[in-house]
């Protein structure tokens, strides 16, 4: 078990076992429900990060840790742990290790505010411009119990991840690649870079858990590829991606996955409705499963 060097280029990647099984499924959580919850939990992490005014790279790291937590037979089960608590723990943990440490109190207040929102898929402006977010406070009693929950979940996350908190992100790398390809600086360079980042950020929420399956370099190349085609930037002739250690097959897979993301979100919104809430606690998940069983039996 020689330790592997970790760098800005390497990420711990999931094993096949981790990608094809999960504790939640062993516990009887239907796969599509699991997908919905992990996606909604990642969105929750993102929303909390924005409200806490954390930089995007910190938020991205938290989302990756959140996603890592649930996969594989040794990962966490949605019927045992609350997705919302795990999300709060990852934000708290990642911010603690960064230059933007957040107090337990602000994390707790933020998550309490988000839990009070009536739906899982509100317009992003709901929480970005939210006035009441900064004024939302839990009672002192709630705060004290919430802090214990936060600490317990932080330990839980560390335990399940074996203290593997390293996350390498593709964002900075994609800028370097665009420079190498002479896409920036150029007239359409800014638009291209912006669109590339949008794809990289969307990929964080992908149901295919792309940050767990592909190294940063491959993600960066794929996002540039998709963005360039959308914007109309002319790509070089030949197999240019090979320069960046990316294989055609991986690129093809990622391009499809990134391209299908918007469709996935649309279907999720349709499934849960503009008013519905994706279950984010173990109790709610159990309730949802029960409801489904009853509906099936009734049908």
């Amino acid at each position: 078990m020689a330790p592997e060097p970790l760098s800005i280029l390497t990420n711990p990647l999931a094993t096949v076992e981790q990608l094809t099984s999960s504790s939640s499924q062993f516990d009887g959580v239907p796969a599509d429900l699991e997908t919905s919850i992990i996606h909604a939990g990642a969105r929750l992490t993102q929303a909390a990060g924005i409200l806490l005014q954390l930089p995007q790279d910190i938020i991205a790291q938290a989302i990756v840790l959140f996603t890592r937590f649930w996969i594989g037979s040794e990962g966490g089960s949605l019927l045992e742990h609350n997705a919302s608590d795990v999300s709060a723990a990852t934000i708290y943990l990642v911010s603690k290790l960064s230059a933007y440490q957040k107090s337990p109190r602000s994390v707790i207040n933020t998550y309490a505010y988000l839990a009070s929102l009536p739906a899982t898929f509100p317009l992003p402006s709901t929480y970005i411009d939210a006035q009441d977010a900064s004024t939302y406070h839990v009672s002192e009693g709630t705060y004290l119990t919430s802090r214990q929950t936060l600490n317990a979940n932080e330990s839980l996350v560390l335990r399940i991840l074996g203290f593997q908190t390293h996350v390498a992100l593709p964002h900075a790398l994609s800028i370097t690649y665009m420079q190498t390809l002479s896409f920036i600086p150029s007239p359409s360079g800014t638009a291209l870079a912006a669109r590339t980042f949008e794809h990289l950020n969307a990929a964080l929420l992908s149901p295919q858990l792309l940050y767990l399956t592909h190294p940063p370099a491959t993600l960066a190349v794929a996002a540039i590829y998709v963005a360039a085609r959308e914007i109309g930037t002319k790509l070089p002739e030949g197999e240019w991606w090979e320069v960046f250690d990316c294989e055609r097959e991986d690129l093809g897979f990622l391009v499809l996955a990134m391209g299908s993301f918007e469709g996935f979100v649309r279907e999720e919104v349709q499934k849960w409705g503009r008013r519905g809430k994706v279950p984010l606690t173990a109790k709610q998940v159990a309730g949802e499963i029960e409801k489904r069983t009853m509906l099936e039996e009734g049908a």
Partner: peptide, 24 residues
């Protein structure tokens, strides 16, 4: 080089290409 993909159980996504979903 590890190459693994997450198999999606839902059939409602655009990547229905079987080959691309099979762990390579």
């Amino acid at each position: 080089r590890p190459a693994k993909r997450r198999r999606l159980s839902t059939d409602n996504n655009a990547t229905s290409d079987e080959a691309s979903q099979r762990p390579r």
